[in-house]
Design a protein around this nucleic acid. Structure first.
Length: 157
DNA sequence: GTTGAGCGTT
């Protein structure tokens, strides 16, 4: 429908519209990277944490054993971590599950997300790339594709 | 002994 109008609008939105001609001070070969011939570099279709799952809504009595046993049916769980409180030592109600493959993680998420475990509904989502001292960087296209970003300024369909 | 949205360590 309005795909044509959206396309033309996208074309009217250059990536670098600033007048800053700072090229990093380094001589970049034009052959390796075309200046303005490429429309836009294809963003890698890789969501944050492909094989890492963030599981919330866990029961207070849930442990890594029950989680692993519940998610091992969908794939190979390479790592499972539940966040416990340093003071009381009780579980915070959320944890992380590492799968051996992205397919297994997605399958487990799609299969166990919203399901009830130990009397509590599980909330499963793809874990963010949490690195020490490093902020979380999520591509905009991926954020939109995942539905995390609301339509703020960008019209849907 | 309690609580219930969320994003962790090596």
């Amino acid at each position: 429908m309005a795909a044509r109008a959206l396309l033309s609008r996208l074309r009217l939105a250059p990536v670098s519209h600033n007048h800053h001609h700072h090229y990093h001070g380094r001589a970049l070969s034009a052959a390796a990277s075309p200046p303005d011939d490429s429309p836009t570099p294809p963003p890698p279709p890789t969501p944050p944490s492909n094989s890492k799952l963030f599981v919330a809504g866990l029961s207070w009595s849930a442990d890594e054993r029950s989680l692993t046993d519940a998610f091992s049916s969908f794939g190979t769980v390479t790592e499972v971590r539940i966040m416990y409180d340093k003071n009381s030592g009780r579980s915070r109600g959320f944890g992380f599950i590492h799968f051996s493959s992205e397919y297994e993680a997605k399958c487990a998420k799609d299969a166990m997300d919203g399901k009830v475990m130990l009397g509590r509904p599980l909330r499963i989502s793809f874990a963010l790339d949490k690195v020490r001292g490093a902020p979380v960087i999520v591509p905009l296209s991926i954020a939109h594709h995942s539905g995390w970003l609301a339509d703020d300024g960008v019209t849907e369909s």
